[in-house]
Simulated assay, not measured.
Amino acid sequence: MFFTIRIYIYAGILVVGSIFNLQKAKKRFHQSNNQVVMEEIFTTPQRVSQKVIQRTGTTVQVNGREKLLDEPVLYVANHQGLFDILAFLGYLGRPIGFIAKKEIKKLPIIRSWMELLYCVFIDRKDRRQSMKAIQQGIENLKAGHSLVIFPEGTRSRGSKIGEFKSGSLRLAMKANVPIVPVAIDGTYHMLEEKGRVQASDITMIISDPIYPIDYQSLKNAELAQRIQHTVEQLLDGCNNKELKKADITK
Results as ranks from 00 to 15, higher is better:
Leu107Asp: 15
Phe88Ser: 05
Arg28Gln: 05
Glu66Ile: 12
Lys27Tyr: 12
Gly90Pro: 01
Gly81Lys: 07
Arg124Ala: 00
Gln54Glu: 12
Gly97Met: 04
Thr59Phe: 10
Cys119Phe: 14
Gln23Leu: 08
Gly93Trp: 14
Tyr118Pro: 02
Phe83Val: 12
Gln31Arg: 13
Gly137Tyr: 07
Gln54Asp: 13
Pro95Leu: 06
Tyr75Asn: 05
Ala133Asp: 01
Gly137Val: 01
Asn34Ala: 08
Val52Glu: 13
Glu139Tyr: 03
Leu116Ser: 07
Ile110Asp: 12
Ile99Met: 11
Leu116Met: 06
Arg124Asp: 06
Asn78Asp: 06
Val52Trp: 14
Thr58Arg: 12
Cys119His: 09
Lys27Met: 13
Glu115Ser: 08
Leu68Asp: 15
Tyr118His: 10
Gln136Thr: 05
Val73Glu: 09
Ile53Lys: 07
Ile85Gln: 11
Pro108Leu: 08
His79Gln: 08
Glu66Ala: 15
Arg111Asn: 14
Glu115Gln: 10
Gln61His: 11
Ala143Arg: 04
Leu92Lys: 07
Pro45Arg: 11
Leu92Ile: 03
Arg65His: 11
Gly144Leu: 07
Lys26Ala: 06
Lys51Glu: 13
Gly90Thr: 03
Leu74Glu: 03
Lys125Val: 02
Tyr75Trp: 02
Gly64Ala: 15
Tyr118Phe: 09
Ala25Gly: 01
Glu139Asn: 08
Arg28Asn: 05
Pro72Asp: 12
Leu117Gln: 08
Ser49Ala: 10
Gln23Cys: 11
Lys101Trp: 10
Phe98Met: 11
Asn78Phe: 05
Lys106Gln: 15
Asp84Thr: 02
His30Arg: 02
Ile99Leu: 10
Ile122Asn: 03
Ile109Pro: 15
Thr56Val: 15
Gln50Pro: 00
Met114Phe: 14
Glu71Lys: 14
Glu139Gly: 04
Thr58Asp: 12
Leu116Lys: 03
Val48Thr: 07
Leu141Ser: 04
Ser130Lys: 04
Lys106Met: 14
Thr59His: 12
Val120Gln: 07
Val76Asp: 05
Leu107Trp: 15
